[in-house]
């Protein structure tokens, strides 16, 4: 994908499996939203092919869009209308039962604010309403573009619980984020996007394991001493000795977390 001869996305090759939470992670401005816009048919790729529900995104129609839910950084809410009225209009558009509105508002914990005007909602409540609108028609595929960006930990936690419950109900979720802990806790698989290129595409634990170059164990002893041992069979007798003498406070593997991997990749580190 290129804009004015500047390549934004290069050689992207990925498949999202049904029912999984797929996370696209990368720093701001790296092309995550551009990729979502391509997947949702809002932008056409300058080369290559993109298929959603087996259909070329150039030809997406009502059938596909009615199975897709979207949460973008630009809300597009009807500011002067209430939460309930906002959802009511989309219920009319999709031709679904109005009873679903109260159910969805309860799901996102907004039932008490059903009659509140959108312009009076807090940022967290607005975000939950945007998610409510995205799941109103029970989509099979949900695009979430940085859904917890700028939210406090409580709202973030609520949205995480909601995302996991949607996955349990069989929804496929495509999530972009620059929060590594979010990707780690929610995603079945993550892809790391750097300068328009996919660097990694695997389960978060697998990626962390790949970048575990040190492969050692960090042991903190009761006397305050920190011991680093190779994570191999050779260390078993030393560890066994520490345990026998009840000297160990904690043991950690040297495996990096997703944030360490991310920083390493962004700084040009190799696995």
């Amino acid at each position: 994908m290129s804009f004015q001869h500047h390549m934004v996305l290069k050689g992207i090759d990925l498949t999202i499996n049904q029912g999984e939470i797929f996370g696209l992670i990368g720093p701001s401005g790296v092309g995550k939203t551009t990729l979502i816009n391509i997947l949702t048919g809002q932008l056409l790729p300058t080369s290559g092919e993109v298929f959603v529900f087996g259909r070329d995104t150039k030809q997406l129609g009502d059938t596909e869009y009615s199975q897709m839910g979207m949460v973008f950084d630009v809300p597009g809410l009807f500011e002067r209308l209430s939460c309930e009225q906002n959802l009511s209009i989309f219920a009319d558009i999709y031709g679904i039962d109005k009873k679903r509105i109260s159910h969805v508002l309860e799901t996102v914990n907004l039932a008490a604010s059903a009659k509140t005007k959108v312009s009076r909602l807090s940022k967290g409540m607005r975000q939950r309403l945007i998610i409510a609108r995205a799941i109103l028609h029970s989509p099979k595929l949900l695009f979430l573009d940085e859904p917890t960006s700028g939210l406090d930990p409580l709202n973030t936690s609520d949205i995480h619980k909601l995302i996991l419950s949607l996955k349990e109900s069989g929804t496929t979720i495509f999530l972009t984020t620059h929060k590594m802990d979010e990707a780690m806790s929610l995603c079945d698989r993550v892809a790391l996007l750097s300068e328009g290129v996919l660097i990694e595409n695997d389960a978060p634990d697998e990626i962390c394991r790949k970048y575990n170059l040190e492969n050692s164990l960090h042991i903190l002893l009761k006397n305050g001493e920190r011991v680093i041992l190779p994570n191999t069979a050779d260390s078993k007798e030393t560890i066994s000795e520490y345990m026998k003498n009840e000297q160990i406070v904690s043991i950690h593997s040297s495996e990096p977390n997703l944030e360490d991997v991310f920083l390493s990749v962004m700084k040009g580190g190799k696995k």
Binding site: Y65, S66, M68, F72, V74, G76, L77, I93
Partner: peptide, 13 residues
């Protein structure tokens, strides 16, 4: 400019 039309169009309108 408030992206309402964009959301409507992505919702099959």
């Amino acid at each position: 400019f408030s992206n309402v039309t964009r959301m409507l169009i992505l919702s099959t309108v």
